[in-house]
Design a protein around this nucleic acid. Structure first.
Lengths: 140, 140
DNA sequence: ATCTTTGTATAACAGTTGCAAGCACTAGAG
DNA sequence: CTCTAGTGCTTGCAACTGTTATACAAAGAT
């Protein structure tokens, strides 16, 4: 990888970061408008300064998780929604139930397998259900 | 609420915050030691400076979600674990499995109830599991 | 004994986060 | 028309986050 390619990689990473902040900001602004709130109203309710909220919406600043939490609460949406958009949290997979079972910290491997199997049996009894997912499908 | 009570409230909140950072730091140190890693080794693997990791472990600094993510990855634990301890994420994610079962669009109510019951039975067979969660607990 | 590793202290520093004060503009009321 | 209230943004700044470099004491290894 020569210098030109390294330069391109860096530029790409930088603009990707900015895009993420812009998306988050746009999303917050959209939610705010959907809630019929002015920027000042939302900032008051979230307990943050209105210039700062403005900067966040325009993607100029990267707010901490705490600020995101405050905004989410004021918007009456889940904080996780904002965390996901901010890149703090991963997006849940499609096969939530199996995924949740497999990641449960309190289940043994044997119990996990049993639950997955029971779950798949139940799916087969439901005409509207998708094709039964396997453990392999989930772990990829 | 008179001034004395307000003062006590503020003091309590402040010390609660400090306790939270100390808990997080202790947890990270415990995990590090369980993994038989030196502070310098973990900081290298996490890509953060060792004095900073030391300060985090001693509860002197409040790391960003990104730093927590790096530490979690180096410790091979989920970032969510650290987020919860840092107060970024609610512990209600602990009942992910039940929550996922209940929200699964392809399960009938009867099947949901059955799966939850089986899950709770498995929890009771595990000494380390938390107290069995009920459907009511999850839905709030 | 010496040398290495470990965790911590400290200071200086750069960059970032979030705020307060203030500005420019628009819409509506009188 | 003027004035007021509301709106979103600009700017400068303080505090914080995270780094680097250096140093030290204690523990562990040879």
């Amino acid at each position: 990888m020569d210098k030109k390619q390294i330069g391109e990689k860096v530029d790409q990473a930088a603009s990707t970061g900015r895009m993420k902040l812009g998306e988050l900001g746009s999303f917050i602004r959209d939610q705010r408008k959907a809630a019929r709130l002015s920027l000042r109203k939302l900032s008051d309710q979230a307990g943050i300064s209105n210039p700062y909220l403005s900067q966040i919406e325009r993607g100029l600043r990267k707010p901490s998780a705490e600020i995101l939490q405050s905004i989410a609460k004021a918007l009456q949406i889940s904080a996780e929604t904002l965390y996901i958009r901010a890149g703090i949290l991963d997006e849940r997979r499609d096969s939530d139930t199996i995924s949740a079972i497999l990641q449960d910290p309190y289940l043994s491997e044997a119990h996990k397998r049993s639950l997955v199997e029971i779950y798949n049996n139940y799916l087969q009894l439901s005409a509207e259900a998708p094709k039964a997912a396997t453990v392999k499908d989930v772990t990829g």
